[in-house]
């Protein structure tokens, strides 16, 4: 039987719904998750199904959304807290970084924080400077929290289940641009399709160059690979899925095969996913390096509103193709 196709938002919704049925301790909290049915419709129908106890609308109060989820998790619940968008999670940086990520270590393992913080992420649609970020690397900077962002429906489903079941705090970001994007769901319909935390995925094997990316970058990489294959260039695409834990094994193995790398990130270039991967590759694979490592990132500006300026600032498949051609 062919696997079902679902848009990513529905895959996320299904994972969350099943986990709430599986474990009474799991509940959702956040702005507009209940009566409004979820800003991105991931919690559509939840308040009718689970009631207000487990589907908790909050005031527009990101500091307490973050911090109360930490406290509830410490005390034994398994909150899935939603930040409507990652831009608003900046207001909760202290709760996430100083509390969620540090409490397990600071008290030497006495407490655990099994909380999932979901947030829509990404650029585009002329959302303008303050609503246009993909800042996962900021959060992945700090030990103590895991950070991930899926690129497709099946991964979204398996990664969210894994996150809810894990005992560590996890920032789970969801590209707004992928919510409506349909994709095949896993064949496994047991309800226990759980992807391992910190494992990347070779989306496409190739021999000439490795593209390392995650989330929406995977789509750009695939389109670029199709174009490049017309010129006889064989591209390997690695979807890291997790910024922390970072699957360095899969990176090094791929690079040692292709000897060339392009890193594609929707986020900004300075102190970034790309910087980190480039540093890791040169430290561990120096003898395998046949060309400089290239990075395709968003432009180093606050995102402008106007349509063409915005397109100039964002990465896309053409920019990935151009970067590959520079090192082939």
């Amino acid at each position: 039987m062919a696997a079902r196709n679902l848009p990513m938002r529905e895959a996320l919704r299904l994972a969350l719904l099943e986990e709430m049925h599986r474990d009474e301790r799991v509940f959702v909290m956040g702005e507009e998750v209940g009566v409004w049915q979820g800003t991105h419709r991931v919690t559509r129908g939840f308040i009718e199904e689970f009631g207000e106890k487990r589907v908790r609308d909050t005031p527009i109060s990101e500091m307490v959304i973050g911090g109360a989820a930490v406290g509830a998790a410490m005390a034994g619940l398994r909150p899935v807290a939603e930040f409507m968008t990652i831009n608003f999670a900046f207001l909760a940086l202290d709760a996430l970084i100083n509390h969620a990520a540090k409490i397990h270590y600071m008290f030497d393992g006495m407490f655990t924080v099994p909380a999932v913080f979901r947030a829509a992420t990404g650029w585009g649609d002329q959302a303008t400077a303050t609503h246009s970020h993909m800042p996962e690397p900021i959060f992945a900077h700090f030990p103590g929290m895991y950070v991930c962002s899926p690129s497709n429906s099946a991964d979204a489903y398996g990664m969210l289940k894994a996150s809810i079941r894990d005992d560590n705090p996890i920032l789970f970001t969801e590209s707004i641009g992928l919510y409506s994007h349909p994709g095949p769901m896993p064949e496994d319909e047991s309800g226990d399709y759980v992807l391992p935390i910190g494992k990347g995925n070779v989306v496409q094997e190739g021999t000439d160059v490795s593209i390392f990316t995650y989330a929406r970058g995977v789509e750009w990489a695939k389109r670029a690979a199709r174009t490049l294959s017309e010129d006889g260039v064989s591209v390997e695409i690695v979807d890291l899925r997790w910024l922390r834990p970072l699957d360095t094994d899969i990176i090094f193995e791929s690079f040692r095969k292709t000897n060339r790398a392009v890193i594609v990130e929707e986020s900004l270039p300075m102190y970034s996913f790309g910087s980190e991967l480039a540093a890791q590759i040169q430290e561990h694979c120096f003898d395998y390096m046949d060309a400089p490592i290239k990075r395709v990132s968003a432009a180093d500006v606050p995102l402008p509103y106007s349509k063409y300026l915005e397109l100039m600032a964002l990465p896309d498949a053409d920019k990935v193709v151009a970067a590959v051609k520079e090192i082939i």
Partner: peptide, 9 residues
């Protein structure tokens, strides 16, 4: 906020 979360439990 941690106090609030603990009270929620």
């Amino acid at each position: 906020p941690l106090a609030a979360g603990i009270a929620l439990e």
